[in-house]
């Protein structure tokens, strides 16, 4: 497969690529750090703040249960939000860049 030769350095300096790469880096690492912090609050909270986890909120359902359940929805939320931003923004920038290089 003789692929077309690209000047990778030039693409890397292309303003469109710089914009894409900057946006992606901020978004991806930002949300990754958020999700990790949110997740580690669960084992840390369960171990060091058991009083908080025991507070009953909805009948017998306590804060700890709701917090653990919220982890699922937060993860799904981040995934859906990422898909939305990526489909709308990142893919568009990538397409524009690829078209420009043709």
């Amino acid at each position: 497969m003789a692929d077309k030769q690209y000047d990778w350095g030039a693409i890397a300096r292309n303003p469109k690529f710089v914009e894409l790469h900057h946006k992606k880096t901020v978004f991806l690492f930002g949300w990754w750090i958020f999700s990790s912090v949110y997740y580690f609050l669960l084992p840390i909270g369960a171990a060091y703040a058991p009083g908080l986890f025991k507070i009953q909120i909805l009948g017998r359902v306590n804060f700890g249960y709701l917090f653990a359940l919220s982890q699922f929805f937060v993860s799904w939320g981040i995934a859906m939000y990422y898909a939305h931003v990526a489909n709308k923004d990142f893919d568009r920038l990538t397409r524009e860049l690829v078209d420009e290089l043709k």
Binding site: L28, W32, S36, L42, Y65, A68, Q71, F72, S75, A79
Partner: peptide
């Protein structure tokens, strides 16, 4: 009880790393 549920959470959250990184 609860601890088993808490244990299962990490197995899903792990996929955020897979997805984003």
């Amino acid at each position: 009880g609860y601890d088993g549920f808490m244990y299962s959470v990490g197995w899903l959250v792990a996929y955020i790393t897979v997805l984003l990184i």
